[in-house]
Simulated assay, not measured.
Amino acid sequence: MKKVLYITANAKSEEQSFSLKAGREFIDLYKQNNPQDEITEINLYDIDIPYIDTDVFSGWGKLQSGKSFDELTDNEKKTVGKINQFTDQFIEADKYVFVTPMWNLSIPPKMKAYIDTFVIAGKTFKYTENGPVGLLEGKKAVHIQASGGIYSEGPAKNFEFGNSYIKTVLGFIGVNSVESILIEGTAQSEPGPDAIKAKASERVKEVIKGF
């Protein structure tokens, strides 16, 4: 049995979102093909994600100095403890499906906050004399992203910091098998929503085979 995290960051409903519709099709197909696997859905707009703030830094500092978790303040325990829960959950999973819209050339802030809970030195990567090394090798991921324009090619390619960022972060922690499902041009008149959805569905069926 494999553990799969289905992670979404979109304030819209599935009916209103190109990426969430494709994500739902993907995870439903995965369930049909892998009924024995355990799938955990994480809607980042439904949960509280701690930011890395002064309590987190002070808590981490105390732990690194040799103090126990019980010696942290209540606020430090709350934030550091919550981050630890997300980190452990991420490490325990075998596969990941990230679903995001492109907002202002990148990912929603909720997704960035979530990423900050699992890119943790000593847990998902380590520093060596030859530089950082990822610790989560052998895992797979898919990123489904919808954007109003075309960013995979052409003049706007250099402005794409959503899918490229997620792939870079995952590679940094050792997850090098990452497929992308890019749903582009949703704000353009051509080719239109029906054609875009049909193309996305074809890509979903293609990627699911190797996931």
Rank of each mutant, 00 (worst) to 15 (best):
V4E: 04
V4G: 01
T79C: 00
I183R: 00
R203C: 03
I91E: 13
S189W: 03
I120H: 08
K139C: 01
E71D: 09
V142S: 04
K12Y: 04
W60T: 03
S58Q: 12
L182F: 05
V169R: 05
H143G: 12
P132L: 12
I7H: 04
T117A: 05
R24P: 00
I196C: 01
W103S: 07
W60S: 02
G66K: 04
G185D: 01
L182P: 00
D53Q: 08
R203G: 01
D48F: 14
Y30A: 01
K197W: 02
K199D: 15
G81V: 08
A93E: 13
E92F: 01
G138D: 14
A198D: 11
N104V: 11
W60R: 10
L29P: 00
F125C: 10
E71T: 08
A9M: 04
K78G: 00
I120N: 09
F57H: 10
P155F: 10
E184Q: 15
K123G: 03
Y96E: 04
P191R: 11
K3E: 12
K95F: 05
M111W: 03
N10P: 03
K21R: 15
P193V: 06
S201E: 03
N43Y: 00
I49D: 02
G148P: 07
Y6K: 03
Q188C: 12
K199H: 05
K157D: 10
F98I: 11
L105F: 15
E15I: 01
T40D: 01
L63H: 05
G192T: 10
A187S: 13
K139L: 08
P35V: 09
Q89W: 02
V56Q: 00
A187C: 06
G171N: 15
V207T: 14
E137K: 15
K95N: 13
D48A: 10
G61N: 07
K209A: 12
A156I: 07
T117N: 11
